[in-house]
């Protein structure tokens, strides 16, 4: 369980708090999506949980242990630039396993498994630069999952992709969530993406960065139960919520 208790964060030489009094509990197997305009502190929040960033004001624990730095219990997927361009797909995915001394045989087994999950089996020998943006992100996701972390942290993982690819990968991520039962924390600034993927949706507002409102939503559950994605996104409930959230974001930014 991830627990943030009264977290405040101030960057040097800035006037406003990047995060003000953030309280957040994330239960195992939840899919939490943080949504908010640019500059409202989403990345800062994720970086605190990932262990890339520290604050003395407030408490951040994972399973009751203070976060002291990055760890294998948390896999991170970045928006871009995080793959090793000198390695092929298979070597990228196995990068962490190799560093930790996992045998070649074991590595190949694990890599083969996650390659199937993200549907990249036939590209295992390609270099990263030979892949499309969407495929590269799938490699990043596979690399994070192969270490079998408890938590998956994703900072705008689909932010650099075109709309069509984006929808495909949203579905890939949802089915991986179902298959692996990971706790997922994802950042986005697309309202539609947030609504479609989350089971808990957190709206943040800027200056100072704050949690404004939290929604429990079940569109991803509907999708995983077999309802058509387009149908879900056109449903009255989805459209109404989308407009409601848009109003909040416009009113506060």
């Amino acid at each position: 369980m991830i627990n943030l208790n009264n977290v405040n964060l101030q960057y040097e030489n800035t006037a406003t708090l990047a995060l003000e009094n953030v309280n957040l509990k994330i239960q195992p197997k939840e899919f939490v999506v943080i949504l908010g305009a640019s500059g409202c502190g989403k990345t800062s929040l994720l970086n605190l949980i990932a262990g890339f960033l520290f604050t003395d004001n407030g408490d951040i624990t994972i399973n009751d242990h203070q976060v002291k730095g990055p760890g294998l219990d948390r896999g991170v997927v970045f928006q871009k630039n995080a793959l090793m361009p000198w390695l092929n797909v298979e070597e990228n995915i196995g990068f962490g396993l190799k560093l930790r001394g996992v045998s070649k045989e074991e590595r190949t087994k694990e890599i083969t498994k996650v390659l199937e999950w993200v549907d990249l089996t036939e590209f295992r020998n390609n270099y990263v630069y030979e892949l499309s943006g969407g495929m590269q992100q799938r490699v990043g996701i596979a690399r994070a999952l192969v270490a079998n972390p408890e938590i998956l942290l994703m900072d705008e993982p689909l932010g650099a992709l075109d709309a069509i690819t984006r929808q495909d990968i949203q579905k890939v991520v949802l089915s991986l969530w179902q298959k692996t039962q990971k706790t997922i924390l994802m950042i986005t600034h697309s309202i539609e993406e947030a609504l479609f993927m989350a089971n808990k949706l957190i709206i943040m507002t800027p200056r100072p960065g704050k949690i404004h409102k939290t929604y429990d939503v079940d569109f991803s559950k509907q999708y995983l139960e077999g309802v058509d994605a387009g149908e879900i996104k056109r449903s009255q409930k989805f459209v109404n919520l989308k407009n409601e959230i848009l109003e909040i974001i416009e009113a506060t930014s």
Binding site: A50, L72, R74, V76, F78, Q79, K80, M84, G140, A147
Partner: peptide, 24 residues
């Protein structure tokens, strides 16, 4: 991001130098 990704995957300080920083 590349450095952070390697840290999340369990790279030690020395591995970071030999497996990420040097080839990069």
């Amino acid at each position: 991001e590349r450095i952070r990704a390697a840290l999340c995957l369990g790279a030690s300080k020395w591995q970071l130098i030999t497996s990420v920083i040097f080839p990069s």
